[in-house]
Measured scan of single mutants.
Amino acid sequence: LQAFIKTLTGKTFTVEMEPSDTIENLKAKIQDKEGIPPDQQRLIFAGKQLEDGRTLSDYNIQKESTLHLVL
């Protein structure tokens, strides 16, 4: 599935991932794409901060969901 990552500066980019991917995997993909170390990334979806060990499906993240990236 493709999801949108929106930063506080208003920049939006897309990442490809599977519902079974962990938040940790997602942070690694963001690092590959944007060069931001995972330990500096905080991802917010539906008002909740996402925990590394959980999966996208745990948070009911669907295709074309928008996640907010806070540094």
Rank of each mutant, 00 (worst) to 15 (best):
K6G: 03
D52R: 03
L67Y: 03
F4P: 02
A3F: 15
N60C: 05
V15I: 14
E16F: 13
R42D: 05
T9V: 07
K48S: 09
A28I: 13
S20T: 12
S20Y: 12
D58T: 04
L26Q: 00
E34P: 00
L8S: 15
F4W: 09
E16L: 12
A46K: 14
R42K: 12
I44Y: 15
E24H: 11
T12K: 07
M17Y: 15
T55Q: 08
F45S: 03
F13V: 04
L43W: 02
D39V: 09
T66C: 06
S57C: 04
F4Y: 12
L50K: 00
E16I: 12
L67C: 01
Q40N: 09
N25K: 15
T7I: 09
K33W: 07
F45V: 04
I61N: 04
Q49T: 14
Q62D: 13
V15S: 00
P19M: 12
R54P: 03
I30M: 01
L69R: 00
I44E: 08
T9P: 04
Q31C: 09
N25M: 15
T12Y: 09
I30T: 00
L8E: 15
F4N: 09
L71K: 05
T55D: 03
L56R: 00
K6S: 10
D32N: 10
K63Q: 13
E18W: 13
I5H: 02
K48G: 06
P38S: 14
I5C: 05
K11Y: 15
E16N: 11
D32C: 07
D39G: 11
Q2E: 08
K6D: 04
L69C: 01
M17Q: 02
L8Q: 14
Q62H: 11
F13Q: 00
L1G: 06
S20A: 09
N60L: 10
K27D: 00
L43K: 01
L71H: 06
A3N: 03
K11S: 07
I30K: 00
L8C: 15
L50F: 02
K48C: 07
L69H: 00
L1H: 06
G35Q: 04
A28M: 14
N25G: 08
I36K: 02
S57Q: 12
I44T: 10
T14D: 04
G47A: 03
V15N: 00
S57L: 11
I30F: 02
Q40W: 10
T14L: 11
T66M: 09
D32L: 13
L8V: 13
Q41N: 02
L8A: 14
